[in-house]
């Protein structure tokens, strides 16, 4: 059974249809990249998978581990192992990072039938995972995302991914706005977290990140649909030629 099965997914925000029939199958252990021009619906797909309320699914279904993902509350999805690295991580003023993660980890572990970590175990894990993405462990004293630089925010998303050990990780433009060092750190983190029972869906506008994280599959999304799929060479082709030729091929540009 596939880990994630998206069938003919249609979604809209207010009156505007953004996803117009997305089909995608992701198996455990795979890394999928979804590329596409601005406004093609990539980030909407990520938001719909995570359960953001602003989007209304009008058609189609999403099976996660055989279960109907769309019926689950956002926190239920997270506890089932769906993780979204936000394109714009939200600031939570005054909410301490360590407290936040302790609560999150507790909820997720409880769902998996595991006891909460002892404070010592938790701190050890936190240090270990912070090191993985090259984050200063002093961040645990800080408020979630508040006053973080752009790079820190993105690293912090990967750090949280490492802490919460999801089965399906969706990275929504995690590479945008990163300098080359931060990009490497993020990619390093992701590579270390690749495992046979974890899948990644990496949403990106540029090929750049894929130099560091080599995907098993590359999909191109245009106007709310996946119009082409291939291996990593497709990404290089896109880098070279841009998106227009694909748009032309699928008949979206006159």
């Amino acid at each position: 059974m596939a880990l994630l099965e998206i069938r003919n997914l249609h979604a809209r925000v207010e009156e505007k249809e953004i996803l117009k029939g997305v089909n995608l199958t992701v198996n455990a252990g795979e890394v999928h990249a979804i590329m596409g021009p601005n406004g093609s619906g990539k980030s909407t797909l990520a938001s719909v998978l995570a359960g953001r309320e602003d989007y209304e699914v009008t058609e189609g279904e999403v099976l996660y581990d055989g279960k109907n993902l769309l019926e689950m509350e956002p926190d239920e999805r997270a506890r089932e192992g769906v993780f979204l690295a936000f394109q714009y991580p939200v600031e939570l003023p005054g909410v301490n990072m360590a407290t936040f993660l302790r609560e999150a980890l507790k909820a997720i572990r409880e769902h998996r039938g595991l006891p909460p970590l002892s404070p010592a175990e938790f701190m050890k894990l936190l240090k270990e995972k912070a090191a993985l993405v090259g984050l200063d462990p002093s961040l645990k004293q800080r408020s979630v995302n508040e006053g973080f630089s752009g790079g820190e925010k993105k690293r912090s998303e990967i750090f949280q991914l490492a802490m919460l050990e999801p089965r399906l990780a969706i990275l929504d433009e995690t590479d945008s706005g990163l300098d080359i060092d931060a990009l490497r750190a993020v990619a390093d983190g992701v590579n270390k977290l690749r495992s046979p029972d974890r899948a990644f869906v990496i949403i990106t506008h540029y090929q750049r990140l894929l130099n560091y994280i080599v995907p098993d599959y590359v999909h191109v999304m245009v106007d709310g649909r996946i119009v082409r799929s291939g291996d990593k060479s497709l990404a290089l082709e896109l880098e070279e030629k841009g998106y227009d030729w694909i748009k032309e091929e699928v008949g979206l540009v006159a």
């Binding site: 995570a50 359960g51 956002p74 926190d75 936000f86 939200v90 600031e91 909410v95 936040f100 999150a104």
Partner: peptide, 26 residues
Amino acid sequence: DQIFYCQQRGLSEETAIKLIVNGFCK
């Protein structure tokens, strides 16, 4: 968006509100 972010990390709405209110008063 703050509640959604917390929920995406597995927290219930209740826990999310508690955390955010506590943060507000910190």
